[in-house]
């Protein structure tokens, strides 16, 4: 056999063999399961039910070891107040970890607190927030070392032993869900209480909410009552213009909430 023929035949054999090999690769059960896992966690928040007690924030900080003195939080509650003369006020004093016990609005260190005449209030409501565990999270995309990642069941986590603390993920999150942990000095965020939900427990915040304003579900399970709400009712997500496909759904979301 000439060398040229040998080369030709080799190429044909490799090309021929690679077709069935790639077919085998396609039906790797692990990959199939990863693409369509049986569990995909989602969150549902009913803003009509939230009263701003802040129990969820307290429970979260206790459960996940985020110091109360630290002015950061994995979850927080925002208060929106609209006056009849068309002014808009928003605040979340200390992430609402002690609830909204003051009628005055916190306007930051510059302006202090603002009194609002109760007769002038047009509408007011509370909006709990947490990590949206997006389908296409920008935070995991930008991590230079892959220390933050999305699990197969749809939860975005941070590997504390590998995070270099560059802050790129904090910058990339359009929802302000991330921060530097005050004592661990790495990026930190809501984990959907991954250590609890994987054992069949509720998240700390869901568990603490006295009015069931917060709920969790497996969105793949169409018989789950919470999943049914997400699939059948009119729910919204925060900032969908960023294309991150958030997995925290809201009932009664106002357009002013950003």
């Amino acid at each position: 056999m000439k060398r040229r023929d040998f080369m030709k035949k080799t190429i044909v054999v490799i090309a021929g063999a690679s077709v069935p090999l790639s077919a085998l690769d396609l039906i790797d059960p692990k990959e199939v399961l990863a693409a369509n896992p049986e569990i995909h966690w989602a969150f549902l928040i009913d803003t009509y039910k939230c009263v701003g007690c802040g129990f969820c924030v307290k429970a979260c900080k206790t459960e996940n070891d985020i110091p109360f003195e630290a002015n950061v939080s994995r979850t927080w509650v925002e208060r929106y107040v609209y006056t009849k003369d068309d002014r808009r006020y928003v605040d979340s004093p200390q992430a609402a970890q002690y609830g909204f016990t003051e009628a005055k609005i916190d306007l930051g260190e510059h302006f202090g607190f603002q009194e609002i005449d109760p007769d002038n209030v047009g509408k007011a409501f509370f909006v709990p927030k947490l990590c949206n565990h997006c389908e296409t999270p920008p935070c995991t995309q930008v991590c230079p070392v892959g220390a933050t990642y999305k699990t197969d069941d749809g939860v975005v986590l941070v590997d504390r032993s590998w995070c270099i603390g560059c802050g790129y993920c904090i910058m990339a999150c359009p929802f302000g869900a991330r921060f530097f942990h005050p004592t661990e000095h790495v990026a930190d965020k809501c984990t959907f209480c991954y250590h609890r939900i994987t054992k069949g427990l509720e998240t700390a915040c869901v568990n603490a909410c006295p009015f069931s304003a917060r709920k969790m579900c497996n969105i793949r399970d169409i018989n789950d009552p919470v999943t049914k709400i997400i699939l059948n009712e009119r729910v919204g997500v925060l900032k969908d213009e960023f294309g991150t496909r958030p997995q925290a759904f809201y009932i009664g979301l106002a357009s002013e909430v950003r």
């Binding site: 939080s73 927080w76 992430a95 930051g108 904090i170 302000g176 991330r178 921060f179």
Partner: peptide, 13 residues
């Protein structure tokens, strides 16, 4: 230094 409404986790990182 924060002024008006800034999300709790936002700082000049």
């Amino acid at each position: 230094v924060k002024e008006l409404f800034v999300l709790p986790n936002e700082y000049i990182y």
